[in-house]
Amino acid sequence: MINSDTTILEKEPERAAASTPVSLVRRIGGLSDRAIAWLFITPTIALLLAINIFPLIWAVRLSFTNYRANRPNAVLETVGLQNYQRVLTDSDIWIAMQTTAHFVFWTILLQTLIGFSLAYLIDRKFRGHAFWTTVILIPMMLSPAVVGNFWRFLYQPQIGLFNYIVSYITGVPPSSFEMLGSVSLAPWSIIIVDTWMWTPYVMLICLAGLRSIPDYIYEAAEVDRASAWRQFWSITIPMALPFIMLAVLFRGIENFKMFDMVMLLTGGGPGSTTEVASITLKREAFESWRTGRASAFAIILFVAVFGLANIYVNALNRVKQR
């Protein structure tokens, strides 16, 4: 049986060659491997240039002009570094950056702590762990638009379930506080939703890290009579750290450009309390129509994220090499 299977597999390339039209074989046959490789990747490169690189270069160009998309016929003037100077000296933009930093810090902290804890529990392989893993993953499978609208209802002060649960636990009337309308609570309402939605993602990456630790290391530690606490700090954490750092990197980049959830939940309000950088950018570009200034802001954001991500990836590589 094995022999006959092997024979079939051996004959497969011959059959494929036989069914290929002769002219095509001849045409491709005249090309080098390198040329064929280029033939295949050229469409992808062309697409990338068209939808990624060209807009980037165009945005850089616009950032040095007074261009406004709602006045396409106006004379385009080069304004040098004026747009960059205005962005960097605009107090509203710095407040938006602080708001963004606040979200990024707290969401990453909470998601990493809860995500790793859940992964650690799931890795114990208790009865029904597969079922609970699936249940925990459900929030990240939902569309952000659905999650945003869903939580808007939950946070509704008069009929929202969230307020009723808090009321049940604390005894305060449910309509006495507004998660989305209060200056002090609105930022936390977004952090709660983002943490609810994306903690499973962090958990999944951490779980992969925990599962990659070979059992024999723990067995050796058992032989050396290392305590569970010592095993956790000396084996589990160091060996899962590259995975945790990877999760932090992914969530950091995602949350730095957080837009949909904030827009759906608070629209940046109340006032400008939850106006993160991406919302300021959108308002600048598509509501105020200062396209040149918005391009400058986008370039600054891009450079910041790119630079921070590079530093972080270097650190990640150093940890992996240890």
Partner: peptide
């Protein structure tokens, strides 16, 4: 003073 709760937007 007088708007229903949650009418912030």
């Amino acid at each position: 003073c007088c708007t229903p709760p949650g009418y912030t937007d």
